[in-house]
């Protein structure tokens, strides 16, 4: 067991180093990313401010709380993009036979899929996320106690796992359909809408969907509601939401792993 973990850690760190080297081969690409990503997210938060200022608070959530919520969602998105970006390209790998090589190596295929590319450019996604979150935490009066920081870390881990599970499950569909590129875009839009705005402003049906079926409400909405004592839309669970998020994350991730494994059996490789 210990030696297996050591083996996987050693391979993952080697891959991470190679991934950084590969990305540094194209510095201009890095630069363009550095320019575009902050613009995208800061304009997002600006829109929120306009909406709240001109109209009204969203279901009892005022601008500071919304900023906190948005920032929390962005950070987990940013970290997800660093470690799990390859889950976005499962369908390409199905079509062009990219899993062949992974299957030829004596390691877990899903591990190889994920670990083989650490997208450290994704850290750029985290910068605006952290800034927006810290700003939101400040104006919303987030209490920086040790317990809260611990909870925050658990929530981030859980949120990342929920995102990874979602994209893995969607990508796995490609083992049957062969092509599902638009699914990634669809899921990204869905995630943005459900993590950046309070879930409680949606109709009951959507709230239930994003809580029990595709539990993306746990990524940022429920924990933020608890941290800030804001309206959680009536969902009441024992213990704190901050503990439910990592639990939901781990469960979703395990289920997604199972789905992926099942899908692999259907893998048909590519010609030649």
């Amino acid at each position: 067991m210990v030696s297996t973990i050591k083996h996987y850690v050693s391979v993952a760190s080697c891959w991470a180093r190679l991934a950084v080297q590969r990305q540094l081969e194209y510095p201009l690409f890095l630069f363009s990313w550095l320019l575009m990503i902050p613009i995208q997210y800061f304009s997002g938060i600006w829109m929120l401010k306009i909406i709240v200022d001109r109209f009204q608070a969203l279901n009892g959530w005022d601008f500071p709380q919304l900023t906190f919520l948005y920032g929390l969602g962005l950070i987990s998105h940013g970290i997800f993009v660093v470690f799990f970006i390859n889950t976005w390209s499962i369908d390409h790998m199905v079509i062009n036979g990219g899993f062949d090589r992974l299957l030829l190596r004596p390691m877990n295929v899903f591990f190889q899929l994920v670990a083989s590319y650490v997208n450290f450019i994704g850290l750029i996604d985290c910068i605006p996320g952290v800034i927006i979150f810290l700003y939101g935490a400040d104006i919303a009066g987030f209490d920086w106690t040790l317990a809260n920081i611990g909870k925050l870390i658990l929530v981030l881990i859980g949120g990342i796992l929920i995102r990874a599970a979602l994209f893995t499950s969607l990508g796995t569909i490609a083992f049957w359909t062969k092509r599902n590129g638009s699914m990634v875009g669809f899921a990204l839009t869905m995630l943005e809408r459900a993590t950046m705005y309070p879930l409680s402003m949606y109709p009951y049906f959507l709230q239930a969907l994003f809580t029990f079926i595709i539990p993306i409400g746990f990524i940022s909405f429920y924990p933020a509601a608890e941290f800030l004592n804001a309206d959680s839309g009536g969902l009441d669970l024992p213990l704190s939401f901050a503990l439910w998020t990592p639990l939901v994350g781990v469960i979703c991730f395990l289920i997604a792993g199972g789905i992926f494994k099942f899908g692999m059996r259907n893998y048909e490789s590519a010609g030649s």
Partner: peptide
């Protein structure tokens, strides 16, 4: 040919 090789190497079932 390739299909056989891929089954022998565990890529295909």
């Amino acid at each position: 040919k390739s299909t056989t090789i891929k089954m022998l190497t565990g890529i295909l079932h």
